[in-house]
Design a protein around this nucleic acid. Sequence first.
DNA 1: CAGAATGTTCAAGAAATTTTGAACAAAAAT
DNA 2: ATTTTTGTTCAAAATTTCTTGAACATTCTG
Lengths: 193, 193
Amino acid sequence: METTVKPKKLVRTSARTTGGSLSSNGGNGSRDGASRGALDSFQLQALSFFVHAFAALSLPRSIGEIYGLLFSTEEALSLDDIIERLLISKGSASEGLRWLRSLGAVNPVYLPGVRKEHFTAETSLRKLATGYLRDRINPHLENGPERLRLLQESIVEGMPQSSFQKSRIGQVAGWYKFMGKILPLVKALAGKF
Amino acid sequence: METTVKPKKLVRTSARTTGGSLSSNGGNGSRDGASRGALDSFQLQALSFFVHAFAALSLPRSIGEIYGLLFSTEEALSLDDIIERLLISKGSASEGLRWLRSLGAVNPVYLPGVRKEHFTAETSLRKLATGYLRDRINPHLENGPERLRLLQESIVEGMPQSSFQKSRIGQVAGWYKFMGKILPLVKALAGKF
DNA sequence: CAGAATGTTCAAGAAATTTTGAACAAAAAT
DNA sequence: ATTTTTGTTCAAAATTTCTTGAACATTCTG
């Protein structure tokens, strides 16, 4: 649930990586082995920012790190670039990227003559909000009617408390109506930023 | 992060409780020891509903259970009533109740001549939304300006990427503006339900 | 086609969170 | 003042979630 804020290390100190090949070095100034984990101050600050922001949504650190890195880097980065700079495992990077992709929070960039997929951060509030709502909120709302029905059917008619129970059902129905009103509003407003 | 939905038992099967005193039995029909864990079908369905809903916000099962029980029960319940009906520990019940109270999701009910504190569920969407935003969203927004400043100060002037970095800062500033616009809207609309 | 490069999956381990239960504190009753 | 009732706190245990890394699948290259 996370009530108190604990200090967390920003970049892992462990040096083990998958031992894989070096970066494709999509165009930034740094060079090869010497560049591992070398992030500029803006990138470091962005990692801190997004790890914190994503944690507010109870999302894992690795996802915040990946988005933060892409957000703060002008060039598109490959999976290996991300692994190398963040010192995270291939598995984390792959799954984190998959999650961000499904949300629409990262954009694939097709570079002619380059095999590896490269990504940049999507920063449009409209797209981010839409993706988040679609992937993480709508699924819960979609089975709302079904859940409401189950609740209704659980009422035993004629019991002394059934009148109270019906009023509770009414409340829940109202909550769903509220969600139905507010979500389009959020999307609409997000479109203006 | 929870991507796939796993089946979770609704009511614990273990029978150990704190071994404490029996319920004050705030007025419902059931009696003493025989009533332990005896929930009607509406209450069971409500538990399922709220455990699921709270899980969507990454909140622990115990909190969903407590709110679900209070929501589906007409009488005010005491800490011991909750422990007895949900078969959860005193610690969970106490901390869960504390959390719900700080949010404003439960209301203390003062019963004349009764020592134990009793609670009912708060169901007003306005109060629930306000409490949630106040306790769980605002804290993150409040240090927004500070975080934005740190981000700005991390830019090294004159670097080739500093122009890109400034445009990113602009995006983040926009996100904060959006939050400043949308939250009052949410509160206002919640007031109408 | 064989070999290399790239990316995914998932079992096992690590880390974080939640729950328990007993010790403790506070308030009320006797 | 002592005992009882009520509720809180927190270390340890249980559980859940995240990360790792190696095996696997797939696609490209020569």
